[in-house]
Write a protein that binds this DNA or RNA. Structure first.
Lengths: 211, 211
DNA sequence: AACTTGGTTAACCATATGGTTGGAACAAAT
DNA sequence: ATTTGTTCCAACCATATGGTTAACCAAGTT
């Protein structure tokens, strides 16, 4: 009886990494075992089958993904504060666990069968769900703090801007001049996203929107 | 000796679809053959090996991906026109061949080894490369048409906003109320992206940016 | 008609892969 | 000391997978 929790965690972490990069089908049990530094039979001892292991990992990923939404959302007084807080904490979450979000994307790419089950829960649970963000925007629009925009599309744009450069990191590093120092790049990106979107939401200034 | 071009194309198209959804490792030769409606041996007859097949498909994808950049960029007089034209044609390209971009994302998720070879070419070829977009932004900044922003980050934000909702389509369809009618959603999204980003680039109006 | 040629297929092969098993190692309980 | 229960592993099994081969067939060519 050396250890049970640690081993399970090692498997879990390794599985997350491998599933995130290779996807559900592409991942090999042997690779996960190697990554975890344990025997392949252990995977089945702790998680029964590849499917169950994936289910376990994906459930965790889904939770994390939705948690990232709720973070740092309270305590902001102005909409600007809220937006900055959201972008900051969201990108921090991505930066800290890139595999979580890569797995999420991978699942979407391969059809997202696993999404259905897990997503229902979060649609009910009003807290932390995108609904909160929507309400913040709607409130800000009513107060006249920002322009009248479609809140869903706005959220989608914010999320896209925050996630996609993590997803396409290899390409970004090849093309973008400053992306060699990734940490610095991430920091700069936070600032840019907030800046661009915040301006984009401001009530119309002297310049009119061309149709 | 029925036909040679057609068969090769069928294989190619099928491979694109399967690679796009399952990734390089996750894709199965048998699945590609089934999708193409031909015998598995044909894959090897025409493309020697799985690796070469992937290389062929990925090369095509890379070309398409970069082509999408250059499109519809000339002939725009104002920056607004240019931006709208770019977003429109870029999203149209995504809409018409979603698999091209899904494969691109998949390659990035699994490390992007294949990127290195192909990307060098496009860094040299100034035409159609992101450089063109960068210059457009720099020119607009100099003219005072838009605020002084980091052009690379701006492009990345535009691209993210255009691509990511395609990548995460399964999630979007589950969460977003209006996404059932995908075509209409795509159209609305075009408008939203342009609107938000164009406003975000306008020279500071009466409202100041909070630090 | 005999013969080549290019496209196609079913059957086959070696290996990889998900999954199983019997038992070793070891600690706690009896 | 013996039992008991948990953790772990080497070896194993059935099937899936990438890749090969030999034969077949339709259409030119001679």
């Amino acid at each position: 009886m050396t250890n049970t929790v640690e081993t399970e965690e090692r498997i879990f972490d390794a599985a997350l990494v491998v599933f995130a990069s290779k996807g559900r089908d592409g991942a090999r049990m042997q690779e996960i075992a190697d990554q975890a530094g344990i025997n392949k039979a252990m995977l089945h001892y702790y998680f029964r089958s590849k499917d169950r292991l994936y289910e376990a990992v994906f459930g965790y990923v889904m939770k994390r993904f939705m948690q990232a939404f709720a973070q740092e959302t309270r305590g902001a007084t102005t909409f600007a504060e809220f937006l900055r807080g959201f972008i900051d904490s969201y990108i921090d979450a991505l930066h800290a666990n890139p595999d979580v979000f890569r797995l999420m994307v991978n699942e979407n790419l391969s059809g997202g069968q696993a999404l259905g089950t897990h997503i229902g829960r979060f649609k009910q649970a009003q807290e932390g769900a995108p609904q909160l963000f929507v309400r913040k925007i709607e409130a800000a629009v009513e107060r006249g703090d920002i322009r009248a925009v479609d809140p869903w599309h706005t959220i989608l744009t914010v999320i896209s801007s925050c996630i996609f450069f993590f997803v396409s990191r290899p390409t970004v590093e090849l093309i973008h001049p400053d992306a060699q120092d990734w940490d610095a790049f991430v920091k700069a990106r936070k600032q840019h996203i907030f800046d661009l979107i915040y301006h984009g939401l401001q009530p119309a200034g002297p310049h009119d929107t061309p149709s």
